[in-house]
């Protein structure tokens, strides 16, 4: 019993750390971009102020039960994703509820938040929200294909679906990382990551200058502050998941920060270089070469590497 209480305590500690880290990471990127453009940019603590600001709004109109629940589902998706990912390998405090089969649960939770959000913003009745949902879900369905294929390749490679064991198998040398033992899966998954990160070229569902601003159009006040928190937690959880699956996990906080920052920069750099895809272009893109790479990675690991 005691172990569960301490585990839950540690979990909330993790949530706090990932939340702060996710917000700081976003602010850091914004600050970097501002510096590149010759601006001073936002203060590094601006995302915290923004969350507090939306939280201290004194009026909040509701559009119905599902509208109220939408951000809660979204936040639950982020928290659930994080709950089953070991943040730092080999550390009791940071291992969360990682157990056999947790990778499957995590993949489910990645979906869960988006679906809850779709229900919530659907009830808001705003046409832009409905359009954003259609675009976002179509794109998500598309990028899940290469990601799932990459994960299947990892299942076959490590013969387990526990993230902790996958990380354990990558320890020892840098050459044990999935990046080098199964590069095709990593390529497929990183392309899917671009879609997940919602940066250009795959941000058509959320971009302020496309349909302002997609699913969250009608969300405000504390609904929005929940979604802002989820954005940070979810982004952090996804980064940690990718680090665990493909880049050898992290054994310390500094390694964690460096590796997740590097993975995040992939999405930023690609976003800085490429213009935005339309939805059908994005779907066609994901179901083309990335999907073939994903299939190739499964075949490679099944028939070639062993």
């Amino acid at each position: 019993m005691d172990i569960w209480i301490s585990k839950i305590g540690y979990y909330f500690l993790n949530v706090g750390i990932v939340l702060v880290y996710g917000l700081l990471l976003g602010a850091f990127i914004a600050k970097t971009m501002a510096r590149v453009q010759g601006r001073i940019g936002i203060p590094i603590y601006q995302p915290f102020i923004d969350i507090l600001k939306t939280f201290t709004k004194r009026q909040a109109i509701s559009h119905g039960i599902m509208f109220n629940l939408g951000p809660a589902f979204r936040l639950a998706g982020g928290l659930g994703t994080l709950a089953f990912i070991p943040v730092i390998y080999g550390n009791e405090m940071f291992s969360n509820f990682s157990a056999a089969g947790d990778l499957l649960l995590v993949m489910y939770f990645i979906f869960f938040g988006q679906l809850g959000m779709a229900l919530g913003s659907g009830e808001s009745g705003h046409p832009y929200a409905a359009m954003g949902i259609g675009r976002g879900l179509a794109q998500m369905t598309a990028y899940e294909v290469p990601f799932t294929l990459a994960v299947v390749a990892i299942f076959i490679q490590y013969d387990t679906s526990s993230i902790t064991e996958i990380v354990a198998a990558q320890q020892g040398s840098i050459w044990n990382w999935t990046l080098f033992t199964n590069p095709l899966a990593v390529i497929a998954a990183m392309i899917a990551f671009l879609g997940m990160a919602a940066y250009p070229p795959f941000d058509v569902a959320m971009a302020p200058n496309e349909i302002p601003i997609g699913p969250p159009t009608e969300f405000h006040s504390h609904f929005l502050s929940m979604m802002q928190m989820n954005r940070a937690i979810f982004a952090g959880a996804k980064l940690i998941l990718f680090m665990n699956l493909f880049f050898g996990g992290a054994t310390g906080l500094i390694e964690l920060v460096f590796k997740t920052w590097a993975i995040y920069m992939v999405a930023i750099l690609v976003g800085a270089a490429f213009p935005r895809f339309r939805t059908e272009q994005a779907v066609r893109f994901f179901l083309g070469v990335p999907m073939l790479i994903g299939i190739a990675s499964v075949l490679y690991i099944q028939y070639w590497a062993q």
């Binding site: 501002a34 601006r39 940019g41 203060p43 601006q46 102020i49 923004d50 302020p208 009608e218």
Partner: peptide, 12 residues
């Protein structure tokens, strides 16, 4: 650079 004062545009 109004961003440094915490000013940003929202489309909704």
């Amino acid at each position: 650079d109004a961003n440094r004062y915490g000013i940003q545009m929202r489309p909704t």
